[in-house]
């Protein structure tokens, strides 16, 4: 008998011996009560987790990024081959400052690990009650972009804010279709493994900048 069959057989045998019936009706899981999708709460949680929040115009965010590169002295910014991000950035940044990841990581690993100062992603949604950014990775949003460069910038559209994680799963229908790697990010990488002292940038980004996209006021 294979290990698989032996394990399953033992579980079934012990269950029937103990006279325990499998619970066939799913219990109704009520999402935790929240105060609704509150943008201020979302921002408060992110700031408490050491993320840097910037309210930026939806029309001119690439210019904001270009200015940030200049002020911070960041040489190169990496982003995925998502036209709605890469094209506006290409117009705002000097060609040498923009690196679009459009090849398998094996071919560009050294550049990714050693040459990028900052990366930029687009959040698919936000979770208000924990201050969480939701990233759906895929061909246009490689997994490593939000992980390897030391600074990570995320574009966030407040219209995508949901109250909590349960609402997110329901609203985006993830039970029917999960992206290969769904990521919830709630701050820069951190650790408290040395005598409970908080330090940022353990293995992932040391800084997380969240750009809240706002409509321009008439």
């Amino acid at each position: 008998m294979t290990d698989r069959d032996a394990i399953l057989k033992r579980l079934r045998h012990f269950r029937s011996e103990a006279g325990i019936e499998p619970a066939h009706t799913p219990d109704t899981v009520h999402p935790p009560t929240t105060s609704g999708a509150n943008l201020e709460g979302f921002i408060g949680h992110l700031e408490a987790a050491h993320a840097e929040i910037h309210r930026v115009s939806r029309a001119t965010w690439p210019r904001w990024v270009a200015n940030a590169l200049e002020h911070e002295g960041w040489g190169r910014l990496a982003c995925g081959a998502n036209p709605s991000i890469a094209e506006p950035l290409a117009q705002a940044l000097p060609p040498s400052a923009l690196w679009v990841m459009d090849q398998p990581v094996e071919q560009v690993k050294a550049a990714l690990f050693h040459e990028m100062d900052v990366s930029l992603s687009q959040a698919r949604a936000g979770i208000a009650d924990t201050g969480t950014l939701v990233l759906e990775t895929g061909p246009e949003e490689p997994r490593t972009l939000s992980l390897v460069p030391p600074v990570h910038i995320v574009l966030f559209d407040p219209a995508t804010l949901v109250p909590d994680f349960s609402h997110l799963l329901a609203q985006r229908g993830y039970a029917q279709h999960m992206p290969t790697n769904l990521l919830l990010i709630s701050g820069p990488s951190k650790t408290a493994d040395i005598q409970q002292t908080l330090a940022y940038g353990a293995h992932g980004p040391k800084r997380l900048l969240v750009l809240i996209l706002e409509d321009d006021h008439a």
């Binding site: 969480t132 290969t180 790697n181 769904l182 990521l183 919830l184 990010i185 709630s186 951190k190 992932g204």
Partner: peptide, 14 residues
């Protein structure tokens, strides 16, 4: 209330 990362893996590279 949540950790920095919650990593949900549903397969190898597609």
């Amino acid at each position: 209330s949540i950790t920095t990362y919650f990593n949900m893996i549903s397969g190898p590279r597609k």
